[in-house]
Amino acid sequence: MEITLKIWRQGSQESKKAKGAFETYKLNDIQEDMSFLEMLDVLNEKLLHEGFEPVAFSHDCREGICGSCGVVINGRAHGPLKGITTCQLHMRHLKKFTTLVIEPWRAKAFPVIKDLVVDRSAFDRILQAGGYISVNTGGVPDANSILIGKHIADEAFVAASCIGCGACVAACPNASANLFVSAKISHLALLPQGQPEKHHRVESILKAMDKEGFGNCSNAGACEYECPKGITLKNIAKLNREYFEAVFSASLEEHPTHAHHGKGDESMHVGH
C-alpha cells in the first residue's frame, strides 16, 4: 500500500512552534497485515534514519487492554472501526483511504505533551477522589459471604472494563468525561460493597471532574459510539440517578473526614 500521512506535530523540533501543526509524510511499502501502530513504527524508523525526529505516540500492550494508545484517525477516535483500540486497528481496515489524518485527543483537560501524546492524568485525579471502596488490606470477610447475583456481577464487570483510554472525551463535542466517570460509578454502585460510600463517592468524583475542566454532558452519544469497550450511555443515566439520590439524601447524613487529607482514621467513616 502507498499512503499519505498528515500527522499533528507539537512541541517537537520539527514544528518548533508550541502550537503545533500538521506535517505530511509518504510511505510506499505498507503491508496490509501491519497494525496501524506498526505502520507508525515504520515511519519512525524511516525518520530516524533520515535524521528527523520520530513521531511521539503512546502505546504499550498493543492488544487493546492497557488503554495507552489512542489517536484520532480521519476524524474518528481509535479509527473508523467500532469496538477496538488504535493498536487493534490493522492497515487492511484502512484500504479505502489514501490519506490518513492523525491527531491527538483534543480536549482542554488533556493537554498535549508532545505530538500525539496527551496528558490524561486528570483521569487519575478523578478516581483518586473516590473511585474505590475504602477497605484496608486484611480484616475483610470471606469472599463468599457477600452474595452478588450473576446478572449484577456481569453488569458491574462490563462497567469495570473501562480501560481509561480517553476516546469518550475525544469524541464528545463538549469534551465531557461523563462516560468515563459513569463507568466507575456504575461499577461500584451496582455492588453491595460499594453501598456505604456511594453518596459521598458520586459527589466527590463529580467535583473532581468539574475541577479538571471537562465539559458537560449533552447526551450526544458519541462517547458510547467510540468506546472500544462497549460502555453504554446507560451508565450515564445511572450516574445522574446516583447523583440526584446523593443530593436529595444529603440532609439526612453527614459527610465527615473523607475528603480531608492526612486524617486516616477509618472509624470516622459513616455509612448511611
Binding site: Y132, I133, V135, T137, G138, V140, P141, D142, A143, I146, I148, G149, K150, A153, D154, A156, F157, A160, H187, L188, L191, Q193, G194
Partner: peptide
C-alpha cells in the same frame, strides 16, 4: 477475600 472486598467483579454463579 481482599479483592472481593475491593469490588473486583469476579464471575459469579446464579
Amino acid at each position: 477475600d481482599q479483592c472481593v472486598a475491593q469490588g473486583v467483579p469476579f464471575a459469579r454463579e446464579y
